[in-house]
């Protein structure tokens, strides 16, 4: 099955818009990038490669995305910072109904008064579907290579 240039472009727009929303700290829009039946998981490459299921962060419903968003926005305690997602080219396979993508990412984090550092590097492994006439992530696995996370991850990636 082939994927039309329009679909490819729409998928890339979704992936870019997601990164932009996080970098803009617009967390309220975050759950809306996902389908009603969804999985979001940040997982260390060492777990992913070994078939170990533990996620650094796991949301397997819209409700859990919502709860996470609320916690990051209102409950957790952390200092001010900027994030910049740098995305690689999007590799697209699958079908128009179920588009499968892989996209490399690096996230630069800058804390107030400190040097910019790399928070983590890895790849998104996504399954994207159409729901309510919009593209949504049915599954977004963020597989990170970074062996040691510098302190904490205080937003979705």
């Amino acid at each position: 099955m082939t994927i039309s240039p329009e679909q490819r472009s729409a998928v890339e727009d979704l992936i870019n818009a997601y990164a932009l929303a996080i970098d803009d700290n617009d967390l309220e829009s975050w759950p809306g990038f996902f389908a009603s039946d969804c999985l979001y998981k940040i997982i260390a490459k060492e777990n992913f490669d070994s078939g170990l299921p533990l996620g650094l962060l796991l949301c397997d419903s819209q409700g859990m995305l919502q709860d996470r968003m609320e916690a990051f926005s209102k409950l957790n305690v952390f200092g001010p910072r900027s994030w910049r997602h740098m995305l690689g080219a999007v590799h697209v396979t699958g079908s128009e109904d179920e588009t499968i993508t892989r996209t490399n990412f690096i996230i630069f984090e800058t804390l107030a008064g400190k040097d910019t550092h790399i928070l983590c590097a890895g790849e998104y492994r996504d399954i994207i579907i159409r729901e309510d006439d919009a593209l949504k992530f049915r599954e977004r696995l963020c597989v990170y290579d970074t062996t040691i996370i510098p302190n904490s991850i205080v937003r979705p990636i």
Binding site: A44, P53, L54, G55, T147, I148, I149, N151
Partner: peptide
Amino acid sequence: KLLGHSRQRIG
């Protein structure tokens, strides 16, 4: 049953 690892560095 091992479920997985995570690692962080704290200053």
